[in-house]
Design a protein around this nucleic acid. Structure first.
Lengths: 134, 134
DNA sequence: CGGAATCCAGCCCGATACTG
DNA sequence: CAGTATCGGGCTGGATTCCG
């Protein structure tokens, strides 16, 4: 069976269960992980447990606010575990939960595709913009 | 090799090439496809070519504006092909390009994970919110 | 060190109205 | 039928400041 058929099957499986589109689990999940930082932070944590400041250094262009907020959401969704060491100065470590690690495989498929397709996408954009100007 | 190692490998491959984080192809792609409708429309089109109004019926809660806009972006990125039939009344058909179809496999992995993990995520949220209230 | 709180700009997206 | 144009709300996310 090809990927398209499988995909449709998954969606139909859900459609048979709930009457409303808004509750679609796929959309629920993608909406969450589709934000600006979630997948990137998961990728960083895939290398093992990291302290707050270590994550910050690994992702230079994230603000403190968004780092905290995104980690909280991931923790709330059960993808990330947060462990506080009550020392001075305080230390907090983040790591992927088993659920979070189970997400690495589909995520890796995505990154592979992104890396492989990026140049094609860039070319397509350039071509599209070109004859849009004509 | 596990998924984590593979993921890191992919990122390092890119990090060796470009100096700036902003150009990361993975983030570029995920930012695009992470919007509210892209993946859903790709899923709908995975069933074969569809006319504009057919897509609308398949996704009841999308506005006309966002349907047009999202399809345009997907077309610009080379994932979707647009074919106009100059008849009256006008008819426009959308279909996945080969590049778009190549995205179905990683997307299917994502939807599978989402379906399988949704209940666990909902439980995690409930538990988190519960002892946040305590 | 690891946050929380506040303020604010931008843009995502929906609703509505109009066109070929 | 398949758009385009315009308006406006709400949410995302950045900068800054303060706290234990």
């Amino acid at each position: 069976m090809n990927a398209a058929a499988k995909l449709f099957e998954d969606f139909r499986q859900w459609q048979g269960v709930t009457p409303s589109f808004g509750d679609c689990p796929v959309r629920d999940v993608i909406d969450h992980l589709g934000d600006k930082w979630s997948t990137l932070l998961i990728t960083v944590l895939s290398g093992g447990p990291q302290r707050f400041s270590a994550i910050r250094r690994a992702v230079p262009d994230i603000s403190q606010r968004m780092l905290t907020q995104t980690l909280r959401t991931l923790e709330r969704d059960g993808l990330v575990l947060r462990q506080v060491f009550p020392i001075k100065p305080p230390s907090v470590e983040y790591r992927l939960s088993p659920l979070g690690e189970s997400f690495l495989e589909p995520l890796a498929k995505l990154t592979e595709w992104a890396l492989a397709s990026h140049s094609a996408i860039r070319d397509a954009r350039a071509a599209f913009d070109l004859d849009a100007a004509a």
